[in-house]
């Protein structure tokens, strides 16, 4: 019944691209939720309430996908028929894997020494590295249309994302 054939970009009235005006995504998201959210249908007949929940769920999903760089890139690649193979393709360049090991060692050491400031510092450094990679993803997707290259950069981002989770977990353990 609901027309879910539009892709997430179309849903928000945007051209598919990695480099997005996030403020506009946010505004569209709020405007649409203001129309479809279950709170607007608490009196409506059952059919409308069901529709409202489905729509609201769908809009949340679309917003989450577009808001986060990794999921946005993955989604764009899917629209271009490219699977990022996050889980299956773990063949990464050697220098990248070396970097990963260095990161892990540094995090492990800071964790072992219960050094929260160092963990914070590593977190900030990691954010920078992620920004660089995101720029690369944007270049490859929007300018060069190099989808396999973009997919590899996304896989790299996933690695860094896991490092970030590791840092956050370590901080959480220290704070507890």
């Amino acid at each position: 019944m609901i027309d879910f054939s539009k892709n997430h970009f179309q849903l928000f009235g945007l051209e598919p691209a990695f480099q997005l005006d996030l403020a506009r995504v946010e505004q569209s998201y709020r405007d649409i939720q203001a129309q479809v959210h279950p709170d607007k249908f608490s009196h409506a007949p059952d059919a409308e309430r069901r529709l409202s929940m489905q729509w609201s769920t769908h809009v949340n999903e679309a917003y989450q996908t577009l808001k986060q760089p990794i999921s946005r890139a993955r989604y764009l690649l899917k629209l271009h028929g490219v699977d990022t193979q996050d889980e299956t393709n773990t063949a990464m360049p050697t220098d990248f894997l070396m970097e990963q090991m260095e990161w892990r060692e540094a995090i492990g050491e800071a964790k072992g020494a219960a050094d929260a400031p160092e963990l914070d510092h590593l977190g900030a450094k990691l954010r920078q590295a992620m920004h660089h990679l995101q720029d690369e993803v944007g270049q490859r997707l929007d300018q060069q249309h190099d989808y396999p290259g973009a997919a590899e950069a996304v896989r790299k981002l996933r690695f860094l994302e896991k490092l970030r989770e590791e840092i956050n977990d370590a901080l959480e353990t220290l704070e507890a």
Binding site: I2, D3, F12, S28, A34, V36, L51, S52, W55
Partner: peptide, 15 residues
């Protein structure tokens, strides 16, 4: 079906 159309229309209107 009317409800679905109205919801579609309201989204377009919002945008």
């Amino acid at each position: 079906a009317f409800a679905a159309k109205r919801m579609d229309a309201s989204i377009r209107r919002a945008l």
